[in-house]
Simulated assay, not measured.
Amino acid sequence: MRTLDSLILDQISGGADAGSLTTADTILVCDDPTGDLTAAACGSGRRVVVLDSDYSRCQRAISLGAQIAGDRRLDEFLAGSNGSAVAVGEMPKSLSRLDYLARSIAGAGFDTVTCVFGANNKHLARSMNETLATSFEEVSASRGRGKFRCLVATGPRNVTYEPAAGDGLVAVGGVFSGARADHGGELLRSALPAQLGRFLDLGCGNGSVSRGLDGDITATDSDADAVLSARAIGLSTTWDDAGSRFPAGTFDTIALNPPFHAGTTVDATLVSSLLDASARLLAPGGCLYLVHNSHLRYRPEVERRLGSVEQVARNQRYTVLRATAR
């Protein structure tokens, strides 16, 4: 178990009975990249509810016996709660995601609730304290352990959550780019053909690429915040892992604006599973339109999976490739 996860668990076990993780009735597991917080919570005998937005992590949580909020708004899912609760997780990278979690948990109706969110000291900022203080009366920092520390929030305020909105877009939680169209997505949108056929926005984010398009339009994302954001503007959107719910050869056109960062680090491997999915989901002769940062060399990876590839748009920062399925 990571030092960070161990520190978070130790924070909620203080004062509990010997051998008990916590005396709270419910453990809310928020952002849990390793799954260790979920596993420990499920082993405690308490009611465990996972609020993580990641599809694959939530499926693992179900297999351990946890409930999940899944692709439901957290504030609506938790409304009417009672008893005592503790919420644990890695500190979200996005203040918008932190605010969403804090408001949803504080406004849920629990009699008492404590939030414990941990991170590397260099990733903690005063703005995180301020965001938590909007939803909780008391916010303090734990004692550190190595490079890590937790922020602890108690005393829920009477708050509600409202997604951000603007420019025809809605941003639930920490969806990428918020309620704005990102520059790469806009270049991708401009390169799409007039006739889309059966169209999939793969990894749709806030839905900015496919908003307002005519035809047989489907969107999908593995992040529940993205799914809720896209649905809020009327897109038919599934929550799954790289379009895994769809049969092979389902789509004539796929648009892909993939993630390039894991946390704060550029990770060129993140696109691999989405390219594999594109190759599976395209009908013969169908086309993938992929936008990427121009300095990242994705063309060989696309060619290896799909064959014929050509550049159809480019600006100072981004490139759009079109690949035709064999």
Rank of each mutant, 00 (worst) to 15 (best):
L95E: 12
T319M: 03
V159I: 08
R97P: 02
L74R: 11
V29Q: 03
H261P: 00
A242C: 13
G207S: 07
N206E: 05
P163S: 14
D214H: 13
I217C: 09
T253N: 03
G285E: 04
A242K: 01
N129M: 12
D276R: 10
F176Q: 08
G146D: 10
G185C: 04
A108S: 11
I105L: 07
L188V: 06
A226G: 06
T265K: 15
P284W: 02
I68D: 06
P163G: 11
E90H: 14
G65I: 01
P247D: 13
A242W: 00
P247A: 12
G286A: 09
I62S: 11
V271R: 00
M91V: 02
Y161L: 07
A141G: 15
T250Y: 02
S308A: 15
D25A: 12
N206G: 02
R211G: 13
V48T: 06
L256E: 05
T319C: 09
D201F: 10
G205K: 07
G43T: 06
H183N: 12
L282Y: 10
F260W: 12
E186T: 13
A108Y: 03
D221W: 07
S96L: 11
G205S: 10
H292Q: 14
S236Q: 15
N129T: 14
D241G: 03
V309M: 13
G234T: 00
V175T: 12
G43V: 08
Q195I: 11
A24M: 09
P284F: 06
S308L: 13
R198A: 15
D52C: 07
D75P: 07
D99A: 15
A179Y: 04
A255V: 05
V312I: 11
V152L: 11
G168D: 01
S229V: 06
G118A: 01
P247S: 11
Y298M: 05
A79F: 04
G168N: 01
G118P: 02
V159R: 09
G144D: 08
S140W: 10
C150Y: 08
R143C: 13
M91W: 01
T38A: 04
T114E: 15
V139I: 00
T238M: 10
L37K: 00
A277N: 07
V88C: 04
V302D: 01
A85F: 04
E301Q: 15
C150D: 04
I8H: 06
R72C: 13
A194I: 09
N315Y: 09
T237C: 08
R305W: 09
P247F: 07
C204I: 02
G35W: 02
R297A: 15
W239S: 06
P300Q: 08
S44V: 03
S56G: 09
V271G: 04
A39V: 10
A69Q: 00
A39N: 02
L74T: 04
D111Q: 09
A242M: 03
L64W: 01
A141D: 11
L202I: 01
R73P: 10
F77K: 02
N293C: 02
D216H: 13
A87I: 01
C58W: 03
L98M: 06
L98P: 04
L64K: 11
A230D: 04
G307A: 05
E137F: 13
S244R: 08
A194K: 14
D252E: 14
